[in-house]
Design a protein around this nucleic acid. Structure first.
Lengths: 155, 155
DNA sequence: TGATTACTGCAAATGATTTGCAACAAGCGA
DNA sequence: TCGCTTGTTGCAAATCATTTGCAGTAATCA
């Protein structure tokens, strides 16, 4: 049994919640993904194992995970207004999105700490969190000669 | 006459476009704002000068500006799925959003260059653009004793 | 001063996500 | 193991930001 399932099970128990077949399926599917799926993508995959599964249930489960701080959500500038769900939370990491294939790569850096401090000093503000998003072409798409679409990056 | 109006006028001319009363009003209103307004916010302000103005027209004008690379759009994690329009483009800058009052502060840093290069080397990718977003409390909200809402930052 | 056609306002459409509700089914206690 | 309670699901309809089709309006050019 995966970590997510275990963790959610524990938390559900604490509040009188229930571990349903659908929830287990969605969590297990999510755990197989290293990418940052959209709700639709996750739904499509999970549905292969249970064709009766409903998109609402996927959203409800993702929101539950979000509440429990087990995933985070993010809208990349590359995409319209669609959320992507990040199961790697809460490890601090940043993102790169390929503007051609929309794949997401996570990376770490400690530069952000300094940037935060600089900002706090300069604006007398309190910075809680911060994230970096890079846009460009991943190895594969670069090799396939995908042009860098002008005007599509994070501007 | 503001810079935006002038610039758009020039580009319209080149494609047989027209400078209308509505466009001028929207551009002039946008120029008075240092903040990153939503379409609704800009609409509300512009409407004070022309109550017949329509929200569609605001959107269409903003998209025109976007196409012409005179504003950029961004969805902050703090907000649902609502775009904010950034007239400071194309100067390279980054953002801080106050989680309490939703105000946006722009700032510059050169750290991003190194981060891009590090990433390119490590993943053999091509990075075109990159942006940093910080979340926290601005001076005012911090002084008013606003608690840092847990679970609302950019996670 | 027209004539041409880009632009506007309106209402309806779109797309992602949310929600109300009746039927269903976990998980508890007997 | 069997009910019961009530949390959860599937469905359809609602919501919210944004977009689009269309008929009427108005910039701009000759």
């Amino acid at each position: 049994m995966g970590k997510l399932v275990q963790e959610i099970n524990k938390r559900l128990r604490a509040h009188g919640g229930r571990m349903t077949i659908q929830r287990r399926l969605i969590l297990e599917t999510l755990e197989t993904l290293t990418n940052h799926p959209t709700a639709e993508e996750l739904f499509a995959l999970a549905r292969q194992r249970d064709p009766a599964l409903n998109l609402s249930t996927v959203y409800r489960t993702l929101r539950l995970l979000e509440q429990e701080d087990l995933v985070s959500t993010r809208i990349f500038n590359e995409e319209r207004r669609q959320e992507r769900f990040d199961p790697a939370y809460p490890s601090e990491h940043h993102h790169f999105m390929c503007t051609a294939c929309k794949s997401v790569i996570e990376f770490e850096t400690d530069s952000i700490g300094q940037i935060k401090m600089q900002f706090e000093r300069r604006f007398d503000a309190r910075v809680e969190t911060g994230s970096i998003v890079l846009y460009g072409l991943c190895v594969q798409c670069r090799q396939e000669g995908n042009p860098t679409k002008p005007g599509t990056g994070d501007r």
